[in-house]
Design a protein around this nucleic acid. Structure first.
Lengths: 333, 333
DNA sequence: ATGAAAGCGCTAACAG
DNA sequence: CTGTTAGCGCTTTCAT
């Protein structure tokens, strides 16, 4: 392996000079610079980042921790973060807590031992104060608020947009299906409900399903089927599902009862996954601004790494409803 | 920050001893060990992995490089690799070449500067000999063969399985749609075709579409539509699509022509994505053994890191057809 | 069984 | 503008 020492010798300068040339230090004569660069190239020298990290007290690595990478939303978010970090010359070390709080702590401790310059985390459930307040390195939390920097995507706003869309299409018999206990689920419902209440309209059904975002979990299908056993499936003409997966289950159940989407009933999902884009019918869905989220998270983090203020801060991002076939037809009753 | 030095002082031993205790060196008296551990805990000492890496000449990091993370298959593979690596105490640094060869090289060079202990890579297109042969650290290639270690998933076998399935259902008028130029596409087709040829059956249609695995790309939809303009859509009763996305387009186009799947025509996809699991109808699809792939890749790599043989090696994994609604009915003509 | 000492390859004052 | 020097925090012979 070629070391800086060897370059220095070949170029008849000190290691310090080589180091300066490589880090574009201003006080270097053009001549020395080109001489050094000549030898750097000639010898094929590549700096050892581990040594740089130790000496420079800076790794240029950020740790990214997800609550659950099997959720496709997070998988694409992760890609976006990697791309964004790369622009700033940062590498990403990845952690997946797989919905287990214990892992969450372990992974964060691992990040610390690695001396990552900062952490981006999507916490599991309600962020544990003990864990998150005690983190003494730059941190940005996604989706959940902590005492550090935070980027939130307003689920309430998502619900409101869907409600407005349903209202425009003239629907008054509407239902929601999704989790009620989780914060995100609750907020979606809040927004959705409040918008209808402005017009004195009450939700005709609120079905609870606290399922995880995995394809194998069929709970929501059973729940909606069960509901249709005792209720006329055609009565509610517009369903808001808390995820695309659940929306797919709703459509499937409706189909089982010979109800067509969107001809008879319309359905809206959430997350704008592949499924929404390619299902038949394609699914209207609320899209989170993934790229924007990644950009904000990375730049916010790097600002803090570079020593900007360290106070609590919250950025609110808004999701956007993407209308597709599944809500493409109004009923105008 | 608590350093090893401080622990050593507190415990009245040398740093070497602390180091030995922490790395479970055998020649340490029980008494010293517990004394040292007492102070380690008391002071909350956490080893600095950057320093360990520099001194120990080993980072316990593996670099993982994908050709294109927007492909959902790779996103889940990545999660599996992260989980697997964690079991061995390794962290993963992630790279995404985004289908650009130039990035591929840059990222690999970045990995080298980071002194990763090994690299797992899914190369873009045909692996560039210059790039891949010259990598002088342990490496495992996924899906494509290089002169290093390789794990291949036989696409040919996937095609064969689909063909067998179609044959069992009595289908003789069958078509393929997918890329012909890429290796994987070609192999799928080879396997599919050869199985039918055993029975003297020729494929009735082979449609080329070299699309990327992104939801936005509608090319395959146009291609199949175009085909149906000049061919009776009901004539081919079984389609093999090279991906779930393309399969979805086929089904959509058939629906447009009032052909129902699977009642009139059956369709099989590839990759076993979320889409396949949740579409309506659910989609039969060929699943790659992601977990197995991750396990093999990581253990193969770590074996090489730990100095096992360094010869070229190839592991062949087989995909598995998962039958769902879209091919659930035979025609028995 | 433990300590002393020599690095790992680089950065960053401090001097000149 | 460049060189000298002192580390960064740990591992690992080589002694004892």
């Amino acid at each position: 392996m070629v070391t800086m020492e060897e370059v220095a010798k070949a170029a008849h300068v000190s290691r310090a000079t080589v180091s300066r040339v490589l880090s574009n230090h201003p006080s270097i004569k053009m001549e020395t610079r080109s001489n050094v660069m000549y030898w750097v190239k000639k010898l094929g020298y590549e700096p050892n980042q581990v040594a740089q990290s130790l000496a420079g007290n800076r790794t240029n690595i950020i740790g990214v921790l997800f609550s659950d990478l099997s959720n496709p939303l997070y998988a694409s978010l992760m890609a976006a973060i990697v791309h964004e970090a790369e622009k700033y010359g940062y590498n990403v070390i990845l952690g997946d807590a797989q919905r287990e709080k214990a892992r969450e702590v372990n992974i964060i401790n691992g990040f610390k031992r690695r001396k990552v310059d900062g952490i981006i985390v999507r916490p599991i459930g309600t962020p544990n104060k003990k864990v998150y307040s005690g983190i003494n390195i730059p941190m940005v939390s996604l989706f959940k608020q902590t005492e550090k920097k935070n980027i939130i995507i307003s689920s309430e706003m998502g619900g409101i947009q869907v409600a407005k869309h349903f209202l425009e299409l003239g629907h008054k018999n509407v239902g929601y299906i999704g989790p009620l206990k989780s914060l995100a689920g609750n907020n979606k419902l809040q927004g959705f409900r409040s918008e209808f209440e402005k017009y004195g309209i009450k939700l005709k059904a609120v079905l609870e399903c606290n399922q995880h975002e995995t394809a194998e979990n069929q709970k929501s299908f059973e729940i909606i089927n069960q509901y249709f056993e005792t209720h006329n499936p055609a009565k509610i003409t517009a369903w808001f599902a808390h995820s695309d997966l659940v929306a797919s289950d709703v459509i499937r159940s409706l189909a089982k009862h010979d109800i067509q989407v969107p001809r008879d009933v319309i359905v809206c999902g959430y997350n704008n996954t592949l499924l929404a884009k390619k299902m038949i019918p394609t699914l209207s869905s609320v899209a989170s601004p993934i790229e924007e989220l990644a950009e904000n998270a990375v730049s916010m983090l790097i600002n803090e790494i570079n020593g900007s203020n360290e106070e609590t801060e919250v950025i609110d991002l808004y999701p956007r409803l993407i209308v597709r076939e599944s809500t493409s037809k109004g009923l105008y009753k």
